[in-house]
């Protein structure tokens, strides 16, 4: 299944947002997630199902002004 992760097309076998984070070996506690423009809290990632073409944002703390 092809999804859009942080603006780039990505092929994944993950069924949920939690699976995607595990698949990509991301630190689950130091990222925040959104699916199709909606915030998905950490506790809801395992229930957040990915569909083909899903737009996923996985964000980290960064410098800011």
């Amino acid at each position: 299944m092809r999804i859009d992760l942080n603006g780039a097309p990505v092929d994944t076998a993950a069924a949920t947002l939690a699976d995607l984070i595990a698949e990509r070996d991301l630190p689950e506690h130091s990222v925040a997630t959104a699916l199709d423009g909606q915030f998905i809290p950490r506790t809801a990632r395992a229930q957040a199902r990915l569909a083909p073409g899903a737009r996923v944002e996985i964000l980290s703390p960064m410098q800011g002004g």
Binding site: I58, S60, P61, M62, Q63, G65
Partner: peptide, 19 residues
Amino acid sequence: ITVSLRREGADGAAFREIL
């Protein structure tokens, strides 16, 4: 101090340590 959220860059880990 002000901070932001971005797609992970090269220096993300170093920044988290500074925070």
